[in-house]
Amino acid sequence: MKNDIILAGVGGQGILSIAAIIGYAAVQSNLYLKQAEVHGMSQRGGDVQSHLRLSSKEISSDLIPFGKADMIISVEPMESLRYLPYLSENGWLITNTEPFVNIPDYPPLQKVMDEIKKCPRHVAFDAGKVAEELGSKKAANVVILGAASPFLDIPFSLLEDAVSFLFGKKGEDLVNMNLDALRAGRELANEQMH
């Protein structure tokens, strides 16, 4: 078993939380894991990515080779396209469609969507809206993780456990809201896949 995942977004959008949830679940599954993060200057509103690798065998490189990623999980639509050279032929692109505009030359959203749709295997929806309906827009990253969950070789219940554990300190309400976000994302992905 091997899952090579590129996590993409803009500094501050919570991709490291996604990585932490998957990472916790992977450790519970006794999988090998490597996860390369970006710290420092780029975190200030710049594009950020994380290479997350899970495997039942020892993992060599901290970086995923080009053309070998099984999926790109992105919390921002334009950022999902930045890492296309990493995606394998049969890879999935799972992305939020709500743009994060902090640059003057952000392209028209429709054109970004057209590019995303060119990708033969993709799941794309407005995760911010879904999260907002559930109680907090900040849970958009967990919604996207839910949407990626059908493609992960980790039992869904372990992802739920990880969410409960990692948000546990912040109180029961927040745990339940994030669990709802995770499940809502998964349902939407299942709908789009069929």
Binding site: G45, G67, M78, L81, L84, I103, D105, P107, K111, E115
Partner: peptide, 20 residues
Amino acid sequence: PQPELATIPELVAKRPPSLC
């Protein structure tokens, strides 16, 4: 031999770090 890679669509703009 290195795989032929998908290219990054031209419309993807640079997003340099910026002051908060």
